[in-house]
Write a protein that binds this DNA or RNA. Structure first.
Length: 182
DNA sequence: GTTGAGCGTT
């Protein structure tokens, strides 16, 4: 009787069924295309997102796969969890976050800063003069964007002109370029 | 060819 469907506490352990699957433990060389190939076997996909490191641009080793139907997501989750992909044993589960954190809003999303208002008191900033100051852009403002769950991933579908196919990539990769030396 | 714990930006 302790199970609240609300509690986020064990959300990582018991994510509710969702069309969004988190895929973890990926090889750094596994691409969205590879994931598409694997997961689309279980049903139509609405999107695939490999999470890349902002600095290096390389995969961070996990991704999110969006199905159009929960039933397909469920089947894919059960089937693909623990499977080997590109040499790594991947873990698949329902995502606990629904979508990428909202890209830089561009507008101040904090509470209206009343003087002395109980806002998150991020103090320290040494806020010089005016009472009007934005906390850091990245604070936690995007939390209130969670209602954008219904965001249309379909329009953001992009096609990759990549000539690579996973079965090619595994074997010999950039051997093609031979800077011929004389 | 870097391993790896891990829930998110272009």
């Amino acid at each position: 009787s302790k199970k609240d469907s609300h509690s986020h506490g064990d959300a990582r352990a018991n994510p509710d069924p969702n069309t969004c699957l988190g895929v973890f433990g990926l090889s750094l060389y596994t691409t969205e295309r590879d994931l598409r190939e694997v997961f689309s076997r279980h049903g139509p996909l609405a999107g695939v997102n490999v999470v890349y490191d902002q600095r290096t641009g390389r995969s961070r080793g996990f991704a999110f796969v969006y199905f159009e139907h929960i039933a397909d997501a469920k089947e894919a989750m059960e089937r693909a969890n623990g499977m080997e992909l590109d040499g790594r044993r991947i873990r698949v589960d329902y995502s606990i976050t629904k979508r990428a954190h909202t890209p830089t809003p561009g507008i101040y999303m904090g509470r209206p800063t009343h003087n002395g208002g109980g806002s998150s008191s991020s103090s320290g900033g040494g806020g010089g003069g005016g009472g009007r100051r934005r906390d850091s852009y990245y604070d936690r403002g995007y939390d209130r964007y969670d209602r954008y769950d219904e965001y249309d991933y379909r329009y953001s579908r992009r096609r990759s002109p990549s000539p690579y196919y996973s079965r090619y990539r595994s074997r010999s990769r950039s051997r093609s370029y031979s800077p011929r030396r004389y």
